[in-house]
C-alpha cells in the first residue's frame, strides 16, 4: 500500500496533535485531579430522604475534610432541593446530588459542574467557588413534561 509523502507528514502531524491533546487532558485528569464526575457510590433511590447526607439538603460546613463545605442536592421531577443557596466566595465545596425518580441533569450554567444524576447513584464534584455571581442550575437531561422548569440557584457571595 503506497502512502504519499505529504500524507505521511499530515498523519504524523495529526496523530502528534491528538497525542498532545490526550496527554494534556490525561495529566490534568490523573495528576491534577480534574477527573470528570465518576462517583461509584450507590444509594436506594426510594430512601433518599432518610439517607445521609441527603437527609439534610443544602450547604453544610464540614470539618477535617479536604473541602470546607458539602453542598447537598436532592433532585426529583421537576425540582431541586434546595431551590436557592448562598456560597461564600472562595469556599472549597463538594457538591453531592442524587435523584429520587428518573434521570436528571445537574449543570451549574457557566461552570464545569455538570453531571448526570441517575437513580441509585450518587454524583459528586469538588471545586472551589472562586468567582462571585449568580449561577443558575438547570436540568439538562430530559426528565418529563416539566423538564424545562427544573432549576435552582447558587449565589456566590463575598
Amino acid at each position: 500500500m503506497h502512502i504519499h509523502k505529504f500524507e505521511k507528514i499530515w498523519l504524523i502531524f495529526g496523530v502528534t496533535t491528538l497525542l498532545v491533546f490526550l496527554s494534556v487532558i490525561g495529566v490534568s485528569a490523573f495528576y491534577l485531579g480534574n477527573q470528570p464526575p465518576s462517583c461509584l457510590a450507590t444509594i436506594n433511590p426510594e430512601k433518599v430522604d432518610t439517607t445521609a447526607p441527603f437527609d439534610k439538603p443544602g450547604l453544610n460546613k464540614v470539618e477535617g475534610k479536604e473541602w470546607d463545605y458539602e453542598l447537598v442536592y436532592v433532585a426529583s421531577a421537576f425540582n431541586y432541593t434546595p431551590g436557592e443557596v448562598e456560597v461564600p466566595l472562595g469556599a472549597k465545596v463538594k457538591v453531592l446530588a442524587t435523584t429520587k425518580d428518573v434521570v436528571h441533569g445537574f449543570n451549574v450554567a457557566g461552570t464545569n459542574i455538570n453531571m448526570m444524576l441517575e437513580p441509585g447513584y450518587i454524583s459528586e464534584y469538588v471545586t472551589t467557588f472562586d468567582k462571585a455571581g449568580e449561577y443558575l442550575i438547570v436540568c439538562n437531561e430530559y426528565c418529563g413534561a416539566g423538564h424545562h422548569m427544573m432549576s435552582s440557584m447558587i449565589k456566590v457571595v463575598e
Binding site: 441533569g105 449543570n107 451549574v108 450554567a109 457557566g110 461552570t111 449568580e134 443558575l136 438547570v138 436540568c139 439538562n140 437531561e141 430530559y142 423538564h147 424545562h148 422548569m149 432549576s151 440557584m153
Partner: peptide
Amino acid sequence: LGAPRRSAYSEYGGA
C-alpha cells in the same frame, strides 16, 4: 454559556 439541550422555552424564573 450553559443553555441546556432538549428543553422547551423557559425563562427559568427570570434568571
